[in-house]
Design a protein around this nucleic acid. Structure first.
Length: 517
RNA sequence: UCCCCGAUAGCUCAAUCGGUAGAGCGAGCGGCUGUUAACCGCUAGGUCCGAGGUUCGAGCCCUCGUCGGGGAGCCA
């Protein structure tokens, strides 16, 4: 074992080699480089060791042959635990047998920290365990891929607005007025004054839009909703553009261009991450403008139509067929196991597959159980109700593209939305439903710009007009048609990555009844 | 708030009818010069979530509790 002085000496020699990030390695074939990283996995094989090194930009297979480094060090590396930190030097070479097509022929190694008993192994783990170890779990492949895609999404968001003459305005987190319903506010004691955490920057943003014309805010949003579902967090990130002099069709076009630009950027920058995650790349590529545009009334008609009834029935049959297929496979595997004579690796493979099938079957059971309920909810749908989660899922599954739903009943929506002047039962709003049941990723509207109407709506909701004085002012001094929308970052990332649960789409999730780290 | 499911080795899970607690991974030791969640051999590792009850006997049955997962309602 090297003592610390030796290690320091060796490290300083190593720092003279050019440090390269794994993500850029293919440009250094034939060159001698240094990688700094962590041991992801290792496969010692007699006189050759294959060490998977992770450096934050990617994974690289490092091949260590006995004789190329001191024997003592070679033996030491064999005993390195997962997530030990080390620097390696060597020559980059193309190698088809290596995952990624490139590998490092190692000539030198410096060990920085021996890690032992790393809790997250390269096998399956339960979600509770992983979230308890979220500080380490972030190093694993799946969270890493999702984190990279989230980064691209956020960059694409900023790029889109900055390139389209929007001005960034940071709205406050401590707020004095509600935007989305006062029962879901987190209250904080602000030196004795009760304030609450922002549910939206919108009201402030409307003020700023009258100064800059086109503005956006981007930050965390807090909602104390009692929602324990895979689509909900109590703290999530939302980007909200707000535009002066715009109507509903203009907003839809803006949202469409915006979402489309995000998809294109992720497809361009994160193809390998999408592949690793098993995301539905073909479906993302197939998305073209224009998206589907439905009014709420049309959506309601669709839900209660025979077409939906048939759709749900066909879906039900599909689930049953799928279930049967899984059960047949399961029986087959069990018969194979019972017959005996299998190699150990075959038994392992079967055991893994059985686990997979059981998980799938459990999910199918839930779907089979829910399908008739959802079908019933849809066929019982009455004009005036808000669209439920299952209704949104049905609509989005019936089209392969994102779907806009516009003109919701006024009574089901927030006070600030503009009443349709041609039909005062509805407002000029819209939701954007992501395909494949990933739900609502955007909610937006044209804002009520008439002072008297807005005041009446505030009173109708039972809010105190005093608190909304400054907001009402915007309708007294140069009111114009304006509007905007909010896009939920985690829901968008969940959709693009195919991740079923939104809690995997943020580094440190805050859920209704559980905060881990 | 309501409904369903679960808790067994560090992790993921088995355990037939209520009858001696099991496997894989991980850990340790040994083997292997091209591995792909490598493979092969050996070793160690258990308060079966907690409390009570039924029984000759409980991981398994009953009651209560704790924690976790999924779903409903509500929402981005």
């Amino acid at each position: 074992m090297l003592n610390n002085t030796d290690r320091t000496k060796e490290s300083s020699e190593m720092t003279q080699k050019d440090k390269v990030f794994i993500g850029a390695l293919s440009r250094y074939i034939g060159r001698e480089v240094r990688l700094d990283g962590w041991l992801y996995n290792s496969r010692p094989s007699g006189k050759v060791q294959f060490v998977m090194l992770r450096d934050g930009s990617g994974l690289c297979q490092c091949v260590i042959e006995a004789g190329n480094i001191p024997e003592e060090l070679f033996e030491e590396v064999k005993r390195l635990g997962q997530e030990s930190s080390l620097s390696v030097t060597g020559t980059v070479r193309a190698e088809p047998r290596s995952p990624g097509g490139v590998e490092l022929a190692v000539t030198g190694i410096a060990i920085h920290c021996f890690a032992a008993d790393y809790p997250i192994t390269p096998k399956e783990h339960g979600i509770d365990f992983l979230l308890k170890n979220r500080h380490l779990h972030l190093r694993s492949q799946r969270p890493w891929c999702i984190g990279r895609i989230r980064h691209t999404v956020i960059d694409a968001i900023r790029r889109f607005f900055n390139d389209n003459s929007f001005t960034l305005v940071d709205t406050p987190i401590f707020t004095t007025i509600a935007g989305e319903g006062e029962q879901t506010l987190f209250e904080v004691d602000y030196f004795g004054q009760p304030l609450h955490l922002a549910q939206t920057g919108q009201l402030y943003l409307e003020s700023a839009a009258m100064s800059f014309g086109r503005v956006y805010c981007f930050g965390p949003t807090f909602r104390a909703e009692k929602s324990k579902t895979r689509r909900h967090l109590t703290e999530f990130w939302m980007v909200e553009p707000e535009v002066a002099y715009i109507d509903l069709p203009g907003l839809l076009n803006l949202a469409e261009d915006f979402v489309f630009s995000i998809i294109q950027r992720v497809l361009k920058d994160n193809r390998s991450e999408l592949e690793t995650l098993g995301a539905d790349i073909a479906s993302l590529e197939a998305i073209q403008k224009p998206f589907v545009r439905l009014t709420y009334t049309e959506a309601a008609d669709i839900l209660t139509s025979s077409r939906t009834k048939e759709f749900m029935a066909a879906q039900f049959e599909g689930f049953l067929a799928q279930k049967k297929a899984y059960e047949t496979e399961l029986t087959g595997i069990e018969a194979m196991d019972a017959k005996g004579g299998l190699k150990k690796w075959q038994q392992d493979k079967n055991a893994r597959r059985i686990l997979e099938i059981r998980t799938e079957l459990a999910e199918l059971e839930v779907k089979i159980e829910n399908n008739p309920k959802h079908a019933q909810l849809a066929s019982d749908f009455r004009w005036g109700k808000d669209l439920g989660g299952s209704d949104e899922t049905i609509i989005s599954l019936m089209y392969g593209r994102p779907v806009f739903v516009t003109h919701y009943p006024r009574a089901a929506k927030a006070f600030y939305m503009k009443t349709d002047r041609g039909n005062d039962r509805v407002v000029e709003n819209f939701d954007l439903l992501a395909p494949a049941g990933f739900g609502e990723i955007i909610g937006g509207s044209v804002r009520e710009d008439d002072y008297e109407r807005l005041l009446a709506r505030i009173r109708e909701e039972g809010y105190n007009p005093e608190s909304y004085q400054w907001y009402l002012d915007l309708r007294r001094y140069g009111s114009v048609p304006h509007g905007g929308f909010g896009l939920g970052v985690e829901r968008t990332v969940a959709w693009l990555t195919g991740e079923k649960h939104i809690r995997q789409c943020i580094a440190f999730p805050r859920m209704m009844d559980k905060v881990y780290l």
